[in-house]
Design a protein around this nucleic acid. Structure first.
Lengths: 341, 341
DNA sequence: AATAGTATTGCAAACGTTTTCATTAATCTT
DNA sequence: AAGATTAATGAAAACGTTTGCAATACTATT
């Protein structure tokens, strides 16, 4: 029991073991070139032997960066965010940062709490999903002067630096595809748009595009469904079981579209002959469903990666020049859309 | 510009503004009952005005917990982990902890790096997926005396405290279901089992159960597919396109099973009349596919929640009593399995 | 061999908190 | 009303690092 000290292996323990001063140990880590090779070797050996692990919290107290980046998402659970989180995480990891992750369940007040929590940990930056945030959140970010960015949604008028896609355009593209195929009676299934600017933008631009072509969407052609295959399926069944059915269903995202597809099948309708279905997102798996889902592709992985790279650059550079990146959208026509009957 | 000091709002700035000593400010946060209500109010006001945010890194230097828990997963991207991560995150959040997340892409050496990285941030605990880890990782954990646990896999002989399901049993249950239905010619589609004890356990127990019933699985009935609907679909097509087809496909997880289902459909086979398909996991969406996927349900959300609760309890209690929780498995028979032809 | 560099190292202060101890003020006891 | 508690506050040390400055030991120059 004598030689085995408890977990208090700190830089001075290492220094003692290597018979040098703590400063030298510190320098070995931070400015190796200032330390003679021989000393460095001694120290490395001591570090090995004692199993010393650097304490970033202590470093941080010297104005050093914490090496963490906070990401606040509505939810981790959905395919689409999972993909961005993964890509973002990988990208910042590459730059030596670690991810602090929090989710708020589409509640902007909880988002504020989460951002605050992350700031208590002195993250070097905080990334949020979307452009709509509470005033308190914005104030907090400005006040703390913490680098912040928005992911997922692009808008040129955005306050925060952002990397994402233009969700308004996404909605418009989906609508136009249906319009081009001759659909005039279109059903809409969207998630709740409160606190969700992505859905909001998509829905309003769909409505706008439809309007421009003289197509209106009556109340009974609109349905709300959360991000859930099962509930979207139900919503689709409701929309599709009336006597005068819409000839197409435009869905707020691919998960909903997948549910809609199952719903249509359940109603004995052929897709796309009897009813066309289009989603937005192009999630993993959307290509593999039978028939393949027609959708507007949002490059989640690209967005996540790019966001991670740009953000770490932004944080580590001293210039702090703003950035706003728009990632391209792509119409992916597969098997679920066809000409209107 | 005069009154607006830069971001150096620390506890002494607050103290100055409230005309008290830093100690009192600190106490207001940590032991409010030791501070008179009047003083407390003054301080609260100063905190508000200056927008002070506590610095947990600095607190941590006093032996306080960092308030973070590290979670290292193979990947964030898969439905199944996304679900555990969400549940785990929510649970630890409840207890006032924040999640530090890292992924290693099924590479045990990278897992070690990630654990190390997390420890530099002095996480209060680190949770790993599965029970198979490199010796270096185990050594590191032991050496640092950081609380650690395993999620997802249960084994009574586990070194680490664990919360999860018995994957061996899962494999056995899937095999037995097929056996009960009279299947004797069974195709297997599994992911690469290296560095993935979940898959390993499942596969070996499937083989074992089949063996016990005198069913052997020749080389050409086994196929490997990564966690991808598309590639599983291809694998299934390969298995199903010979002249003598297996009457059932047992898949290592639900994503693979979903791909297999599409593959079967692509081959013009009816499910379950011509071929039965069973998965393991019961992912979100498995219930909604047409036909609904028969599978062995692993309660991801329960596991994540329970793990989070138990782990935070474990960390905050001083007793540190080990725990090992086995979460129940459930055979969910839906539409993809039927009696052998 | 003396001078001027230069490379290497150590000392001590600093970072933003918490906490122990001491001090003062206020409230009881009797 | 004096002494004894108790409540509220402050001073200073401590936590594990980093870093500016000073000190020492080399190595070139001449």
């Amino acid at each position: 029991m004598a030689p085995k000290q408890k977990g208090n292996v700190d830089i001075v323990a290492v220094a003692k073991a290597a018979k040098v001063s703590p400063s030298t140990v510190s320098r070995t880590f931070n400015h190796p070139d200032l330390v003679s090779p021989a000393t460095r070797k001694k120290i490395t050996r001591a570090v090995q032997k004692l199993g010393y692990v650097r304490n970033r919290a202590a470093q941080m107290m010297h104005g050093k960066r914490s090496g963490t980046i906070g990401l606040v998402v509505p939810t981790i659970n959905h395919a689409i965010f999972a993909e961005v989180i993964q890509a973002f995480s990988d990208a910042i990891d590459q730059a030596g940062f670690t991810l602090l992750l929090a989710s708020h369940g589409y509640d902007l007040d909880r988002e504020y709490e989460m951002v605050r929590k992350l700031m208590e940990h002195r993250v070097d930056g905080v990334a949020l999903i979307g452009l709509e945030h509470s005033a308190a959140t914005s104030r907090l970010i400005a006040q703390q002067e913490t680098p912040a960015m928005a992911i997922w949604n692009y808008a040129e008028e955005s306050e925060l630096p952002c990397v994402g896609a233009d969700n308004r355009l996404a909605g418009r593209m989906a609508a136009e595809h249906l319009l081009e195929l001759g659909h005039r009676d279109i059903g809409l299934i969207f998630p709740d748009t409160r606190g969700n600017d992505r859905a909001q933008y998509r829905l309003s631009s769909v409505l706008e595009a439809l309007q421009e072509s003289g197509v209106s969407v009556p109340e009974d052609r609109m349905s709300e469904a959360p991000y859930s295959v099962a509930q979207a399926k139900q919503a689709a069944i409701r929309l599709l079981s009336g006597s005068a059915k819409p000839t197409a269903l435009l869905c707020g995202n691919d998960v909903i579209a997948q549910g809609a597809l199952y719903g249509a099948q359940k109603c004995g309708l052929r897709v796309p002959e009897d009813v066309s279905i289009i989603g937005i997102g192009d999630f993993k798996g959307s290509a593999d469903i039978e028939p393949g889902l027609t959708t507007i592709r949002i490059p989640a992985e690209t967005i996540g990666s790019l966001a991670g790279q740009r953000f770490t650059d932004y944080i580590t550079s001293d210039t702090r020049e703003q950035f706003r990146l728009r990632c391209g959208l792509e119409r992916v026509v597969r098997g679920t859309t066809g000409p209107a009957a």
